[in-house]
Design a protein around this nucleic acid. Structure first.
Lengths: 341, 341
DNA sequence: TTGTAAGCGTTATCAA
DNA sequence: TTGATAACGCTTACAA
């Protein structure tokens, strides 16, 4: 049992209790135990334990400039994809002795700026950012200040930082290949507003570009899901009811779209498979909605870990800055009944 | 544009630039602007802006003891319920000027202790804890140290802290009432290991106690979902195949169980509705799995906000500690086809 | 191997 | 209304 139960124990109290100097105690809890005699180590260890001592990170940070904190900005914490990546980030941080200060921006640039400012005030040593769309200068300011920064999934104009995410062109190619192979000919690509995220732009552009190569025709539909406003059933119904015998399929740009579209298709009484349905992002329930929804899974944990690795690398080589790295992961195709005619 | 792009600006530099003292600048950024002349305020404001000054929270915390940090321990960050609560917690924290240091324990007591210790080292001013099962003394130690603490969903033996969560007995009563009303007679209650969480115990105990009152029979099944090991289809199949004409229904103790059980039922080719299915926790996909899965939704955001309110209240009345509060929220029944015979 | 002393950037106490 | 100055708890030269 610790002797004193209220308030925090300081290094000085431990030093007194162990009949040693603050310096020695500091060395013990820093990485310099080997410099202390066995005996002194023992005294300090037991004194610290007796008193229940934990070094004050705030003081450490103030003196040494090492907050041991990594900041993360998540655009939408209720998106399972974001959470999965965040899980990877947190694991990796902890493995490197860092704690994660994660903030949710709800896709709101104002919250993004506010959080960025808070994170700076805690002197985070690195930032992992799943940015909202708006290209404000706060990000570049962070970099200029010398804080390593990694962009997740979304690049930001005129911010030269490392970027980690999905290989978007490849993902689209895989989707088109799969749909063509399964015999679908007319596609509808459904996305959230592309302005808001570079990954959305990449995917949509690639979709338009490569249709021909796979002998497909197609068009895009933009769904602003933000407000609680319903999904425009009409646009989707119009596509499905268009005359012609060519098999039709829907391609959803991300998990949120897949959810909204699946709801719509059920409301419209569409039979999956006959009408193809495929989505980027794997979700818990995709195998449950009969006959199963085909997806392209992102390696979320790997993405999270890679982001932290970039950070750590920059931290070590801060003197010799290297050009921004772009790391793109391959998706994994999970074929299910929704693309089986 | 800030003049100096590298490193952080200190209060001293602002003071010089504004031809003022550190004290005045400190007052400006503290809550004492009114004590400064209009003119000095102006000089400081513009100097700070010019230099891009942000107060160093670490230094502030060291001096005043106010880290403006709230810590949160989440047992399973990939559980949508936990994330939804966390969202509420974060909103509430921000509204009160606090930042949230959220840690995921993956239901591992060792990680829980480790994180607790880290959070303490950052001198968090309050803790919101969704505890793992193990009743280790670290929690009580936190309280003794004077840090306000709120338990989420799960109580912990011999830790007298505020508790916020679902009204578990009421939830079970609502489920039983609904199932009885819909004509089901034989129930199987499926839960994760109750030892790990008080809420699981409460629910299961209530289930056993109240069956009779609703004219039902039933039993419980414990599913350890932790390992990647599959779900015991056999136990569920055995229940369903038991002879007798009494309509059967499954009641799932939480969202994770609902997911696992739904998978199992699909594998077994069970028709939902004919066999009843109901779960505690509302999930995105419950309306999508035909004919829709009936759930009891928890008011997650409210729970998160209430937790932070408890914290703030304790912080204000720290001199006069009051007995622990227990706040229990009513669930909301969302009836769907899975309980429609 | 151990200790002394000078800060890190801020706020609180006192005085002007 | 303003400003020196001494902490806060820790790390890090520099001495011994």
């Amino acid at each position: 049992m610790p002797a004193r139960s209220t308030r925090h124990v300081t290094i000085l109290e431990v030093a007194r209790e162990a009949r040693a100097s603050k310096t020695s105690v500091s060395r013990y809890f820093g990485d310099e135990r080997e410099r202390l005699s066995r005996e002194l180590q023992g005294r300090i260890a037991s004194a610290a334990k007796r008193l229940g001592y934990r070094p004050n990170q705030m003081a450490r940070s103030l003196k040494g400039g090492h907050s041991r904190l990594i900041g993360m900005l998540v655009a939408d914490i209720r998106n399972p994809f974001s959470v999965a990546v965040m899980h990877g980030v947190e694991q990796a941080c902890r493995a490197s002795g860092y704690s994660l200060l994660a903030c949710n921006t709800d896709n709101d640039p104002a919250q993004e700026s506010a959080h960025l400012s808070v994170l700076a005030s805690y002197r985070v040593e690195g930032l992992v950012i799943n940015a909202t769309g708006s290209p404000h200068g706060a990000l570049q300011a962070v970099i200029d200040r010398g804080t390593p920064l990694v962009l997740l999934d979304r690049e930001v104009d005129r911010v030269d930082a490392d970027v980690v995410g999905l290989d978007n062109p490849r993902a689209i190619d895989m989707a088109l290949e799969h749909l063509a192979e399964r015999g679908y000919r007319e596609l509808l690509y459904i996305t959230e507003p592309p302005e808001e995220a570079s990954s959305r732009q990449r995917r949509m552009a690639r979709f338009q570009t490569r249709l021909d190569d796979f002998g497909l025709t197609g068009e895009s539909l933009c769904l602003p899901l933000t407000g609680g406003t319903g999904i425009p059933h009409d646009a989707i119904a119009a596509f499905l009811n268009r005359p012609g015998a060519a098999p039709k399929a829907l391609l959803c740009a991300n998990g949120k779209i897949t959810l909204a579209v699946t709801r719509t298709l059920q409301a419209l009484g569409v039979r999956l498979g006959e009408t193809g349905l495929m989505g980027i992002d794997e979700l818990d329930w995709c195998e449950l909605v009969a006959p199963g929804i085909t997806t392209l899974a992102q390696p979320t944990e790997a993405i999270g870990r890679a982001a932290v690795e970039c950070l750590m690398q920059r931290r070590e080589t801060q003197r010799h800055p290297s050009p921004p790295r772009h790391i793109h992961y391959q998706p994994v195709l999970i074929p299910r009944g929704s693309t089986q005619r």
